[in-house]
């Protein structure tokens, strides 16, 4: 399979010229193949969000490069923010939020209506088209944010702890929805989380980051069969092995500091 994304020795130091610079990312290197589901796992504050913002082009790395491979000339990636409730456009309804990317890229009204309808159904928000974001629960807001990103047909989807603030039930539900969408749309997903189980459940591979200044501690290949199942997959022996391995990795990272 082709490489979708190359992270080559990316480092980021905030406030470089000040007396107390923050080395957020030491040096990170890894590749992502097309169609892969990759999780980035690391203790909070280790620069996961920073890395996604660098990949999305919102900020520049201090060192290293990001290469994004696409067929088209245009870099087609979308970022689902950790703060999804602040990232939705409050002046737009659910349907209008989802259509935003299509509107600005000049889709025809017919195409636009069709695609909005498709993604409303896909994320299960039928009947909430004309609601404003503040009228929705956290889970529904997150679904809207995901649908808004997917409606642009990205080939690379970056997600920053998207289910972090949800209750366990809607979290499991959304995890399964995401896996289904990922399979249907055949996109590459880079999924940031600090939840070990979630990373194992979702991913093909897990990039485990160390404490700040972060580097890649290890890359875990998750060989659990797909489609995965919330109860069976999570209770399999392999799953438990992965969990203890990663726990040890993260523990080691902490002990060293």
């Amino acid at each position: 399979m082709n490489t979708a994304l190359e992270i080559a020795s990316v480092g980021k130091t905030f406030n470089e010229d000040s007396l107390s610079p923050t080395v957020a990312i030491g040096s990170i290197t890894f590749d992502v193949r097309e169609g892969e589901f990759i999780s980035i796992l690391g203790p909070s504050g280790c620069g996961k969000t920073t890395l996604l913002r660098i990949i999305a082009g919102l900020i520049q790395p201090t060192s290293g490069q990001v290469h994004i491979k696409t067929d088209s000339t245009e870099r087609n990636l979308m970022l689902v923010f950790q703060e999804y409730n602040r990232s939705l456009f409050p002046w737009r309804t659910v349907a209008k939020n989802i259509s935003f990317g299509l509107e600005v890229s000049g889709s025809s009204p017919k195409e636009l209506a069709k695609r909005v309808d498709e993604y409303i159904n896909l994320v299960g928000l039928k009947g909430f088209e004309n609601h404003y974001p503040w009228e929705l629960s956290g889970g529904m807001q997150q679904r809207t944010a995901i649908a808004r990103a997917l409606a642009c047909h990205p080939n690379l989807l970056l997600m920053d702890e998207p289910f972090g603030s949800l209750d366990a039930l809607s979290r499991n539900e959304l995890e399964d929805d995401l896996l289904r969408l990922w399979k249907q749309a055949s996109i590459t997903i880079l999924f940031v989380t600090h939840d070990i189980d979630e990373a194992i459940y979702l991913s093909d591979r897990i990039i485990v980051l160390s404490q700040r200044p972060s580097k890649v501690e290890d890359i875990i290949l998750v060989e659990l069969p797909r489609p995965r199942h919330q109860v069976e997959s999570r209770s399999s022996n392999k799953f438990i092995e992965y969990r203890s391995k990663i726990s040890r990795l993260l523990g080691r990272g902490k002990a060293r500091e």
Partner: peptide
């Protein structure tokens, strides 16, 4: 305007006018 909203706008790769009319204007309305 919330920084997250600005960055969200930036991920859609808007041109200057789109950014002002579709993000900045409604957000500050």
């Amino acid at each position: 305007i919330d920084r997250i909203l600005i960055e969200t706008g930036n991920t859609f790769r808007l041109n200057r006018n789109q950014f002002l009319l579709r993000i900045v204007l409604p957000a500050s309305s």
